[in-house]
């Protein structure tokens, strides 16, 4: 096959259908940008999960003297040494527990001072107003419920708190947004495919003279179809490149510059450039193959070979 001939055919085809080609490029770009965005969002959520789940504990807060007066859970008085020993022994026996650390009232006071040292509240606080607690690291952060059922309501225990619960709300929200992005992406993808099929149909119709002659003089089916398929592939690839540009720009402006979230929200561990760059080949390959396949199937219907 002579490449020059095919290339000139593609150029002619794309220009003849300029508005349709433009629509294909835009819809492919948008759907694939959303596709890449949703992939990156999943990555981001996973990165955050890994980072935060590593740090979260289940805490068993024990009753102190002031709780004994105010909190119904502590009606039986402040925690005793025997109760503490029993709790520790029970925790050590549990399979799901990876590590237990004990935080005394003095430790809690120290940590509180470190975090909120300058606030007026901190200066009026004394160590025996703080709570003793056991900080439990679980082998599987999902197994919080086992601890809660075992220790909630036990004498001397004020409450069992799972920090992960707070995070899960956040991750739930992020996941919800991610699914919404995927739904929009799927819709855009359908639009893109329909546009491609229609573009190929118009293209095949406007070139029916040429293809008719090609058939008669014995051009192979591949030779007749190739310009149409490559046309769709080229338009798709342009769209895919634009989508890649979107992602790179988005990573650059949202995380590093412009919005600069990496400095404003330094509690969050953001995905790196590697996460973005590894998505680009996938997006480019999709942008090339998906329109080519759509064109191929459209041609079976609209172009007799």
């Amino acid at each position: 096959m002579r490449a020059q001939f095919v290339l000139s055919e593609i150029g002619v085809g794309l220009r003849r259908n300029l508005t349709m080609t433009f629509a294909v490029i835009v819809s492919v770009a948008l759907s694939l940008a959303l596709f890449g965005g949703s992939l990156l969002m999943s990555d981001q959520v996973n990165t955050m999960k890994g980072y935060w789940y590593d740090k979260v504990n289940v805490s068993i807060f024990l009753c102190n003297k002031s709780d004994a007066e105010s909190d119904p859970n502590c009606a039986k008085g402040a925690v005793t040494d025997d109760q503490k020993k029993q709790i520790k022994a029970d925790l050590d026996k549990m399979d799901v527990v990876q590590k237990v650390t004990y935080e005394s009232q003095d430790d809690a006071y120290k940590h509180y001072k470190e975090q909120f040292g300058d606030s007026p509240l901190a200066s009026s606080l004394t160590p025996d107003q703080m709570q003793e607690s056991y900080r439990i690291k679980l082998k599987d952060p999902e197994k919080y419920q086992v601890i809660a059922t075992a220790f909630d309501g036990r004498d001397g225990v004020q409450s069992v708190q799972d920090q992960k619960g707070i995070l899960d709300n956040l991750f739930g929200l992020l996941n919800g947004m991610n699914w919404a992005a995927r739904a929009v992406m799927a819709l855009m993808l359908v639009v893109a495919l329909m546009l491609i099929v229609n573009t190929v149909r118009v293209s095949a119709f406007s070139r029916r003279r040429e293809t008719g002659i090609m058939r008669l003089v014995g051009a192979s089916g591949f030779y007749i179809q190739a310009p149409f398929i490559m046309e769709a592939a080229v338009a798709g690839l342009i769209g895919g490149t634009v989508a890649c540009g979107f992602l790179v720009i988005a990573r650059y402006f949202i995380i590093d510059h412009g919005l600069d979230l990496s400095h404003k929200l330094n509690l969050i561990n953001f995905i790196g450039w590697d996460a973005v760059l590894t998505k680009l080949p996938l997006i480019l390959a999709t942008s090339l193959l998906m329109p080519a396949l759509a064109a191929f199937f459209a041609l079976r219907k609209y172009l007799k070979v």
Binding site: R209, E210, G212, I213, R215, L216, V217, G218, A219, S220, G221, V305
Partner: peptide, 22 residues
Amino acid sequence: SNWKVPQMRRQLGTVFQDFRLL
């Protein structure tokens, strides 16, 4: 078979009433 039809047509020439030129 379908994919051999083009080879066969290369040995035929066709002319029509309406010329069918580009």
